[in-house]
Design a protein around this nucleic acid. Structure first.
Lengths: 345, 345
DNA sequence: CTATCTGCTTAAAACGGTTCAAGGAGAAAT
DNA sequence: ATTTCTCCTTGAACCGTTTTAAGCAGATAG
C-alpha cells in the first residue's frame, strides 16, 4: 500500500505538502497542487483512515444498535440511517443484539473500542448504566424510539401513545363499542405506550358510551400466535366487533382465524394492525394499519448525531418526535348498527 | 480518554507491559498481570482501535455491500454475517446500494479508505473492474450469491438453477402440464438462473409429456404488480393449472387475484412462491415455497472471509454452494385429473 | 541596499498503540 | 562467589497521518 511518503517522494515535495494537497488544497500554490494531485491519482493513493483517525480523533463512523434487524421497522430505520450517513460521507456499523442486553453491552464495548464518533441505539431494556459509560468516553449518543431517560443525549421517537389513540379513535368513530386488544407483553415500551394511549383516550370518552376493551396478551407477537389466540377466543362466542392488533402480522393471523370461522372482515369484525408493513396493502384483505415513519426516524437520528459530531460545541440536545399515521384500507368498516344509524341520519 | 500510558503510570509498570497484559497475558508474571488488569478495569480503559490498527495493520472490520436491505433475503443474510462476525470479535459496516452501481463503487472507496480487512458483496451488475481495484489494495473479497467471475476470491451462493428445477418438478409431479411463470426481468441474475434451471428440467422431460410454460414478466417483483398481471391474464380465460412465482410476494398477489375471481387455490390452481419469507407459513393460504438459507449463506460468507483475514497464507479460495429447499404447504395440490389417476392406480 | 512582508513549503512533534532487542533480577549450577 | 539460565520487564522504534512553528525565497517598500 502506498503511503503519503511515497507520494511525496514521487512528487518531489515534502510529506506535509501532500497532506495539505488532500486536506487544504487552497493553501497550496496551484502548480504544486496539480503536480501532487496527479501523482495521487496515478498511484491510486487512498489515505489510511486509521492513521488519520488516530491523529485527528475523528473517523466518520457511527454505530447503529438495534434489537432485531429482521423486523421491518428496524430494517427501514437502518436504511434511513445508512442513507443519511452516506450523504455525510459517514459509514455505519450495524449491531444486531437479538434483544439480548448482554450482547448489547458487548457491542457497546466493541463500538467504543472502534472509536466510533456516535452511537444510535434502541436500548433493549433500561440499559442506562452501560449507556452512561459510553457517553463518559466521549462518544455521542442518540436514542431511537426510546426516551432519553435522564441521559445527556438526543432522542428521536414515534409518539406511540398517539398511535394507540389513533387506532382506538378510528374504531370508536366507526361505532365499535366492544374491542379486543390483541398485543404483546407490556415489558416492551412501545406496547406499553400504545396501551397507555388507548386507555387515556378511553377515559376521555363519557362512561356511558365508553367501549369495552378485552385484553389478550401474546407471548410472542407472531401471526401464528395470534391465530391460535383468536381461535381460542372464538370458542366462547363472539362478543366484540373490533380488534386492535400489536402489529400487522398479528392482524393477518387474526384475519386468517376469522376467515376460517366464516366471520367476515370487515363486515362482521374490523381489524386494525400496526406498523403498516410493506405487505399490508397487498394482503388478502388490505389492512388498515398505523404507519410509523421508520425510514424518516432513522434518517433524522443519523442527521442529528452527525451534526453533533461535526459541531459539538454548537450542538444542543433535542428530542424529535414523529407522529404515526392512520392508513385506512379495507379491514375496518362501520359496525352494522352504526351503518343503520348513518342511514337514518 | 485514558490511554495505555495512563494505565501504565497508574499500575507502576511500563507501557509495553500494559500492552502485553492486553494482547499476550500469558507472558506476564501472574502478579503483574492481575495488577494491570485491575487498573484497566478500574479506569474503564479500552484500547484505541485506530492506533492498534495503524500499527498492526488489522482492524477486525469487514464491509457488507448489499443491493437492498429491505429485501428479507438480505436482511437474513445480514443477520448471519453479523452473528458470525460477532463470534469472531469482528464488526461489520453495512452498505446498502439501492441497486445503484454508482453508489456501490462509492461505497467500495469508502470501505477501502476505512481500511476494512474484507468485503462481502453481492455486486449490482458486472462490477468486476471496481472489485479488481479493491483486491489490488489488499482487501480480501468474497462474493455473495454471485459467481466469482474470474476474480481471485471466495464465493458463496445458492443454487438458483436447482431452485427453479425444484419448483417445476414439484408442479410436474402433481400433474400440472400448463404452467404460468410469473417472474421479473432476466437482468437479475437470480431470475435468469432460476429460469434456466426450469428450462433445463423441462428439456429432460419427454416432449410428449412436457408442460407448456407461459411466461409473464413483471417490471417490479411486487404483490400489486402480480395481482394486476394475473387479473389481466384471467380476462382471456384460464388455460393453466399452476403458477411458479419469482418470489413470495408475487405469489400472494396472485392468490389474491384468484380469490377475487373465485378461483380456488390449490383446488383449481396451484401456486408456488420463492424465498419462503417469514410470513409465508402464516398466510391465508399457507404458501408452498422454495426456501433459501439466507442466514446460513451470510454466516458462511463471513466465516470464510474472516478465516482468510486471520490466515492469509494458509487460505485457499473456495466456492460454497447452498441448496434451496422445497417447503410444501397448502398452496399446491395435484391437478384434478392427476387426482383421478391417483385414485385409479 | 537593507528591511519588511507575503506566500509557500518544510521539518518535526504528536496521536496511541505493538513489538522486539536488550536489560535486570533471581535461581540454579559450577 | 561467580557464572549461566530463565523469566519478566523495559525502552525505543515504528505505523501513516495532521498540524504547527519555523524557514525560505521573492516581491515590495523605505
Amino acid at each position: 500500500m502506498a503511503s503519503i511518503r511515497d507520494v511525496a517522494k514521487a512528487a518531489g515535495v515534502s510529506l506535509g505538502t501532500v497532506s495539505n494537497a488532500i486536506n487544504r488544497p487552497e493553501i497550496l500554490a496551484p502548480r504544486t497542487l496539480r503536480k501532487v494531485q496527479k501523482v495521487i491519482e496515478d498511484m491510486g493513493f487512498v489515505p489510511n483512515a486509521s492513521a488519520r483517525n488516530l491523529r485527528a480523533g475523528r473517523n466518520r463512523v457511527i454505530g447503529l444498535v438495534v434489537p432485531d434487524i429482521s423486523n421491518p421497522f428496524f430494517t427501514d430505520l437502518a436504511r434511513g440511517v445508512n442513507n443519511a450517513a452516506f450523504a455525510a460521507k459517514y459509514v455505519v456499523i450495524l449491531c444486531n443484539t437479538d434483544e439480548s442486553s448482554e450482547k448489547e453491552s458487548q457491542y457497546l464495548d466493541v463500538l467504543s473500542a472502534q472509536n466510533v464518533e456516535g452511537i444510535l441505539i434502541t436500548p433493549a431494556r433500561e440499559t442506562t448504566r452501560a449507556l452512561a459509560s459510553v457517553t463518559e468516553k466521549g462518544i455521542r449518543l442518540a436514542l431511537v424510539d426510546r426516551p432519553a431517560l435522564g441521559l445527556q443525549a438526543c432522542s428521536v421517537a414515534v409518539n406511540d401513545s398517539y398511535g394507540g389513540s389513533l387506532a382506538l379513535t378510528h374504531l370508536y368513530d366507526l361505532g365499535h363499542r366492544s374491542i379486543v386488544l390483541l398485543t404483546g407483553s407490556e415489558d416492551i415500551p412501545q406496547v406499553a405506550d400504545r396501551n397507555a394511549g388507548i386507555r387515556e383516550t378511553l377515559n376521555e370518552i363519557p362512561a356511558s358510551d365508553r367501549p369495552n376493551i378485552i385484553e389478550l396478551r401474546l407471548d410472542s407477537m407472531s401471526a401464528s400466535n395470534a391465530y391460535s389466540a383468536i381461535m381460542k377466543k372464538l370458542e366462547s362466542g363472539i362478543d366484540f366487533t373490533g380488534v386492535i392488533c400489536g402489529n400487522d402480522l398479528i392482524a393477518l393471523g387474526a384475519i386468517r382465524a376469522f376467515r376460517e370461522k366464516n366471520i367476515s372482515v370487515p363486515e362482521d369484525v374490523s381489524v386494525i394492525g400496526y406498523d403498516d408493513i410493506d405487505f399490508a396493502g397487498s394482503a388478502n384483505v388490505p389492512l388498515t394499519s398505523i404507519s410509523q415513519p421508520a425510514y424518516e426516524l432513522g434518517y433524522a437520528a443519523a442527521e442529528l448525531i452527525i451534526s453533533e459530531c461535526e459541531n459539538p460545541e454548537r450542538h444542543v440536545h433535542q428530542r424529535v418526535e414523529f407522529q404515526p399515521r392512520l392508513i385506512v384500507r379495507s379491514s375496518t368498516a362501520p359496525t352494522k348498527s352504526h351503518r343503520a344509524t348513518l342511514k337514518i341520519s
